[in-house]
Amino acid sequence: MLALDTQKEIAQLLSRYPIKRNALLPILHVVQKGNEGYLTPELLEEVAGICEVSQTHVEGVISFYTMYKLEKPGKFHLQVCTCVPCCLVGGEELLEHVEQQLDTHAGHTADDGVFSVEEVECLGACSYAPAVIINEDYHEQMNPEKLDRLMDELRTQGQAHA
């Protein structure tokens, strides 16, 4: 069962489109957000029912877009851009640095479950490269030191919440 808040949000989304299927992408976002950042087969089934599409359709859709996850990400999910402009000004080094710090590889969640890292293509912040997204926020013109500081803060914050 979806949380009441999620259901409300879904109803609101559905009201904005001529047909239910149109709301599929935003609904998947809402459901994913309501489930610690990932989707499960049961949730997909539920969404298929809501949007009146087949489960095949939903699975085809989530496998097409990069933002839908089937595995639980860290509490803070880092997307490090290594596309052209970021790469020109240190995006790759930044990614290596994060991987080293967390002793993990892009695409994995670090052991403590606080951070997960993903190497991504252009985030649309190229004039402010290198760019990193943490959860929903952009952090721009990053360098290893700035990122370390940020992550330290987040780690304390994460542990405080835990």
Partner: peptide, 19 residues
């Protein structure tokens, strides 16, 4: 019957049955 679908994209695009 929608049993078959397209999954992934680009070079990894594939067809398969659902789940």
């Amino acid at each position: 019957t929608n049993e078959f679908g397209m999954y992934n994209r680009g070079h990894e695009l594939t067809v398969d049955t659902y789940a």
